[in-house]
Each structure stands twice: as C-alpha cells, then as structure tokens.
Design a protein around this nucleic acid. Structure first.
Lengths: 139, 139
DNA sequence: TACATTATTACAACTGAGTTGCAAATATAA
DNA sequence: TTATATTTGCAACTCAGTTGTAATAATGTA
C-alpha cells in the first residue's frame, strides 16, 4: 500500500513545515499523478490558489523534508516527484528519470544504472536523464 | 595527434559557417582548454571582443556542424566541449560529463555507461551528469 | 478561548540566462 | 570590384527562478 502524500505528511515529522492550505493543495497535485511534475506546470495549475513564489518555496521545503525530490528536465527546467523512502537527512532518489519527447511526460525509473569506477575522479552523485518514447507514445 | 579546432575548421566542410574573427576567437578558447566551457564563461571572457548574442549564435552553429557538443551542467546552465569524431549529421558525443563540486570544472568522460533495456520505454538519448571531486581537488 | 510567537504568504520588483528583430558590417563568390 | 548572402552589434525582450517586506495565518501556551 502506497501512502498518499497528504497522509504521509500528517504522520512524518515535518520539521517546521506547517499544514497550510497551500501545502495541502500542492501535495494533492502529487497524489493525483504518480509521474513527475514540472514547476512551471504547478505554478500555472495553481495560479488561482497561490502565488508562484509560494509554490517555489513550498517545493523547496518539501524537498528538504524528504517528501519530494527535484531534478532538471531536458531544457534545464526543474521537476519534482514524490520520494520513496527518503528522509530529510538522505535522499535515496538517485534514480534515472525518463522524459518522453512526444508527450513531454517525465517518469521516475526504478532501474538502477551502474556508474563504473573512473580513475582520477571521485563520483559522489549522478544525474541520469533518458529521452525517448513512453509506452503511450510508442504505439 | 589531435587536430586543433582552428585547423579542423579549415579542413572540414563547414556548411555555410564563415571564417570570421569571432568564430576564430571562439575556437581558440576551446583549443586552450581540453575540458568543457560554460557559455557564461565564454560570454564573460569574450565580452570585449564580441557581443553575447554572437557567442550564443556561433556556438549554436558550431554544434550544428559537429565541431562542438553541448550539454547542461548541474544548475541547468549550458556547457560546450569539442566533439571527437562527430559529423554535422550525427553527434557521437553521447558520453557522460563530470562536474567537480569543488572547482566547478567539467570534463567529458570517455567511459561508456550502459543503459539497460527498460520495459515500456524506448530510450533514444541519454544525458548523464556525474558530480564529485576531480583529480586536482581530491588531494 | 485569547494571546504571543513564529512561519507563511502575496506582491512587486528584481536577476540572469538565453532569444529575437533589425539595420549595419563583413565575408565570400562571381 | 561588385553583388549577394551571412554575420554582427545593439537594444529590447522572454521567462524561470529569487529576494525583500509587510501582512496574514498557523502553532504553542496559558
């Protein structure tokens, strides 16, 4: 059973993040969709309910608290998705992301990509963005 | 023996790219350094010699002609590096890039990273950005 | 419930990378 | 040298993301 964001936030220790109307609305967006959402989409979708600054600041805090993780899409735009098993201390979401060139959708992939040992370099983090066609767009 | 950019450009078929003073200056920058250079660095370094619009437009053309390839760094900023064995038709430079968190330097890595087959996804391109410490910053 | 404290929000103004339109300048071909 | 096509500088713009501040709302405590 996957815990919804809304439920999760009521259970987990959220640091100093308050249960405001804006926070709840934002989390509801991530409950609706399992795939990632770009910040510009969120700002546009919630423009009636809240200011774009609020969106940016809440997303930033939710990431700090290990509820969401962020990454950059193919144009350098920021995306967010739900974390699975992250804490505020460590983000375990170092997984690849897939962006469909047809419909633009971005998914978190569960496959793990092996980064080989590279002489003279000490690799500490990896960002893998794959592009191609998603299931719906292949047919 | 590695051909310098300046020499390379005189030999290769460059489409409709003209040998202007600005093009030569830009290519000289890539001859000086073997690692990648960010656009903002280039714009700043060449601000006396040319307009930033010129920098952006020349880089764009050099990429089209397979002389340079571009990718996004950790902040979504654009970087360029010399291509090795690319033509204007196909860019072979689908290699990982490494960005040092200490000094900010970005290198093209020669290692190849295997992207596994992913069910329901047709992967067409991959962007891999590794972060950590480079040789100079490990010690 | 009421109050004090602290976090959050809206708003407007800003930053900075990257883009666009256009007239003037320059490279190339004839 | 001239005609043609490309390139350049400039200014103004776009747009994602940030910052300061005053007002507002959530939380803890009495």
């Amino acid at each position: 059973m996957q815990l919804s964001c809304i439920n999760f936030i009521y259970i987990c220790i959220m640091g100093v993040l308050r249960k405001t109307k804006s926070v709840k609305l934002l989390l509801t967006e991530f409950d609706k969709k399992s795939s990632a959402i770009s910040v510009i989409t969120l700002v546009d979708r919630l423009k009636v309910e809240m200011n774009k600054t609020t969106v940016y600041r809440i997303l930033d805090k939710l990431e700090d608290d290990g509820i969401l993780h962020s990454f950059l899409g193919k144009n350098g735009l920021k995306w967010y998705a739900k974390c699975k098993g992250c804490s505020s201390k460590t983000h375990h979401d170092v997984h690849p992301h897939f962006q469909c060139v047809s419909c633009g959708k971005v998914d978190c992939l569960t496959v793990s990509i092996t980064i080989p040992e590279i002489p003279n370099y000490k690799v500490e983090a990896s960002h893998v963005l794959l592009q191609g066609k998603c299931k719906a767009c292949i047919g």
